[in-house]
Design a binder for these strands. Structure first.
Lengths: 226, 226
DNA sequence: GCAAAAGTGTTAGAAATACACCCATGC
DNA sequence: GCATGGGTGTATTTCTAACACTTTTGC
């Protein structure tokens, strides 16, 4: 069998961040044709001796300089016409970024990079809108059966942040008491001896996700489920 | 940016079948180096103007002639050293085959093709053992929140077949009464006016999966969960 | 003292689990 | 008539869901 393929392999990343109680997405503005000036997912072609994940990490470093907290392969998009220049498949990843890392993205010197509110995205290049739809679905799903939400919050967070994250992303109201009872019963949150006030209302306790504890429990058959 | 990539793109399929109350896997014996004579997943290189899914379907037709009932993309494997010849990434799919289609695979004229009991797999070429591990995990998971199990059973099946499938694949005992009560309450099984006897014991009723009904309910917010 | 968010328990209904006996057939 | 697998109901426990008042702070 002779192999004479001319398919290029790219990686693209759907980078999620959560700020001001809204989900955001990191996009870059294209400098080149096609879709010149259009917005697109950060990404690029995989080098010949580079793993897929390394390629994503490299592209994110080069294009956005953002600090990734969680990275997971999403899906591979391979429709023959998805790139007008040549045949290219894209292995899409999605990533979570903590709010502390938000400024770093803006400070990049490369192409224009910006965070967009998920509900106010610009037109997107290639099939990137579809990739984002997949990523959003995956994120929303994953929230309910793995504690990925913590990847979108600061190291220390208010319980109400966590709760708001869920009600926002899952787009449904949450009973504060029941939610807190359930999450607390898991025993994967450490309550810190530290409070934070937003200027109004009673100051709230800070919490931290206890990842070690979570993995320990997970190995013993514990299932996170919200 | 200059692109001078020499990465090849392959698809591989993890084809599951269920027979004699055991999960089986379809493997082909390699005729060529590397891993000549070794067993591997059916698959091959994607053509320049062919979608990924079309490539899997084509390879399965060419190599195994098996009738696929369900096909889903699994994961893309891209470690630089996974193919000793050259850089190749594999977009892996997994597929479900109904028992009626078992013989067809054996009747192929191409490379040697065989069903292996999942618990008695031979040594595998490339990183195919890892791909299979992923596929198995996904299948087991998916069984519990989508009615994919029906894709492994004949069009008409005994309720006990369905139950056995679950207890076998999930490797845990199931309470017959509770399981039946729950599955029946979903209203996605049609009970047929037809019985089948295995020669011993009381003949059992045949059932059919009502796919239309399932999708209708799913669109209205119904969640399958076992 | 009042506005604003934090923190906290109880109860009723729903769902999950545990459990055992009779039925229809082949031999 | 006995061995084999098919078919069914109830009671208990556990989990889920609904619901409102008190506390702490800033102004």
């Amino acid at each position: 069998m002779t192999i004479s393929q001319t398919i290029k392999v790219a990686v693209d990343a759907v980078v999620f961040g959560y700020r001001n109680q809204a989900l955001h997405l990191l996009l870059i503005q294209r400098k080149l044709q096609p879709y010149e000036g259009g917005w697109a997912l950060p990404g690029g072609f995989v080098l010949d001796n580079e793993s897929l994940e390394a390629a994503v990490q490299r592209e994110l470093r080069e294009e956005t300089n953002v600090t990734i907290n969680y990275l997971e392969q999403l899906y591979t998009f391979g429709a023959p016409e998805r790139d007008p220049r040549f045949r290219a498949i894209a292995v899409a990843y999605y990533a979570l970024v903590k709010p502390d890392a938000f400024e770093i993205a803006a400070s990049t010197d490369a192409d224009d990079v910006r965070w967009f509110d998920i509900n106010a995205l610009p037109e997107l290049a290639f099939d990137h809108a579809e990739i984002i739809r997949h990523a959003l679905r995956r994120l929303r799903n994953k929230l309910t059966y793995e504690p990925v939400g913590f990847g979108l919050l600061s190291e220390k967070f208010l319980f109400s942040d966590f709760e708001k994250l869920y009600s926002t992303l899952l787009n449904k109201p949450i009973d504060r008491r029941n939610f807190r009872k359930k999450v607390m019963s898991f025993g994967i949150l450490t309550e810190l001896d530290e409070k934070r006030s937003d200027g109004k209302g009673r100051p709230a306790n800070l919490f931290q996700f206890n990842e070690d504890q979570y993995f320990k429990m997970k190995n013993q058959g514990f299932y996170f489920e919200l």
